[in-house]
Amino acid sequence: MHTSLQAYYQQYRDNLLHDVLPFWQRHSVDREQGGFFTCLDRTGQVYDTDKFIWLQARQVWTFSMLYNRLEQRPDWLEMAQHGADFLLQHGRADEGSWYFSLNRAGQPLVQPYNIFSDCFATMAFGQLSVATGRDDYAQLAKSTFEQILARRDNPKGRWSKAVADTRPLKNFALPMILCNLSLEIEHLLDPALVEQTIEACIHEVMDVFYDADLGLIRENVTPDGQPSDSFEGRLLNPGHAIEAMWFIMDLAVRRHDPALLEKAVQITLNTLEYAWDPQHGGLFYFMDVNGHPPQQLEWDQKLWWVHIETIISLLKGYQHTGNPACWQWFERVHAYTWQRFPDPAHGGEWFGYLNRQGEALLSLKGGKWKGCFHVPRGLYQCQQVLGELLAQGRPTPAE
């Protein structure tokens, strides 16, 4: 039976407002020592109290963003402020970069080797500055963004374990995130810097990491943009590639660039065709571009973020180009995702990790890598697009 646009819209909105956000509000707040617990089991019980800076910052961003863009609910702003207070007190090393992890009390556990702590701190304080009007938050977001740009060519710096000159490679993740990050804090930056950053990121993502012969995005290339016949050089990360495509679609709309939009949609569809598991359904986590065994033993797992990000890209692709393949894939990925990841009967939120057959591999709802970010952001993005399609009276291919 065909599902209506209205029903899809209601499903994404209700899951966001009545299931996912309440789960984090109920279970993640550390009222005694500040910040958020992210290691939550199926029912929301805390099973580890370490605090990971990027997940703390992502949760601050999520509640600030929803306060700014969806509804100015005081409880959302209170959540964001609670996390920000902890980050301000404990999150940074002396030179201003952000640690990777802390213990419950806020003492540092892992050095600031990971530039993504800085990326999400920038997003968090950028959104919170809008929500609160506080200039100190705005300045902190801006100075952290400048640090990211300064570290961009050597993100791990002295904490890199690679011997720099033997096989230098650059990774897709940072240019991908900068596509989104530059728009997140656009209100704080010089317009010329924003345009320059966007231009550089689009070039990196769509020309350098995109392999035109394959029609796919490589996760690592040599510094001059060539393939490397190595584990890292052959690596495909389908979820990363597809997530980046909705960032690119947003930029293409902003720039009135239909060719860029079409290319982003085509890469999304190419990646789905390549990475969809023909036997059990769902998207593989990692693949080798030559079909060799990947080095990641978890290569065939089905992950929450990969599937929700794919749904966003397909909906945006359909919204902006009307390509019926986007809608057909959306219905397919939606059906797979909603049948397996949500867990309303046991405390809410989504499972993060399924085995290849689509069964929950771990009972956790949050951990070291999964926090309050991809699911709520994805549900928000999807209900926005579906709401716009409804408002426009757009028919779907099945109608």
Results as ranks from 00 to 15, higher is better:
residue 156 K to D: 12
residue 249 M to T: 00
residue 135 D to N: 13
residue 183 L to W: 09
residue 130 V to T: 07
residue 248 I to L: 09
residue 148 I to C: 03
residue 245 M to R: 10
residue 189 L to S: 03
residue 205 V to I: 15
residue 227 P to L: 06
residue 223 P to R: 11
residue 119 C to K: 00
residue 148 I to L: 01
residue 231 F to K: 09
residue 248 I to M: 11
residue 183 L to M: 15
residue 138 A to E: 08
residue 221 V to A: 07
residue 158 R to M: 08
residue 163 V to W: 08
residue 175 P to G: 07
residue 136 D to N: 13
residue 224 D to M: 12
residue 237 N to P: 00
residue 235 L to W: 06
residue 126 G to H: 03
residue 118 D to F: 05
residue 130 V to Q: 12
residue 193 L to P: 03
residue 210 Y to W: 10
residue 160 S to C: 10
residue 156 K to P: 04
residue 120 F to H: 03
residue 221 V to T: 03
residue 166 T to P: 02
residue 137 Y to P: 01
residue 174 L to Q: 01
residue 164 A to C: 06
residue 135 D to F: 14
residue 230 S to R: 01
residue 175 P to H: 04
residue 193 L to T: 04
residue 229 D to A: 14
residue 246 W to M: 08
residue 146 E to Q: 15
residue 214 L to K: 10
residue 124 A to D: 02
residue 197 T to A: 01
residue 138 A to C: 13
residue 252 A to N: 04
residue 146 E to V: 15
residue 135 D to C: 14
residue 248 I to Y: 02
residue 215 G to I: 05
residue 118 D to H: 03
residue 163 V to A: 10
residue 223 P to V: 14
residue 231 F to D: 06
residue 206 M to H: 04
residue 234 R to H: 09
residue 234 R to A: 05
residue 237 N to G: 00
residue 234 R to I: 06
residue 141 A to C: 00
residue 137 Y to L: 14
residue 204 E to C: 10
residue 164 A to R: 14
residue 122 T to W: 00
residue 234 R to N: 09
residue 138 A to L: 07
residue 242 I to V: 15
residue 176 M to S: 05
residue 138 A to Y: 10
residue 137 Y to K: 01
residue 229 D to F: 14
residue 236 L to D: 04
residue 130 V to N: 00
residue 145 F to Y: 15
residue 183 L to H: 13
residue 139 Q to E: 12
residue 144 T to I: 12
residue 192 A to C: 07
residue 198 I to V: 14
residue 177 I to P: 01
residue 176 M to D: 01
residue 210 Y to C: 05
residue 196 Q to M: 12
residue 256 H to K: 03
residue 250 D to P: 05
residue 155 P to R: 02
residue 183 L to T: 07
residue 193 L to V: 03
residue 215 G to K: 04
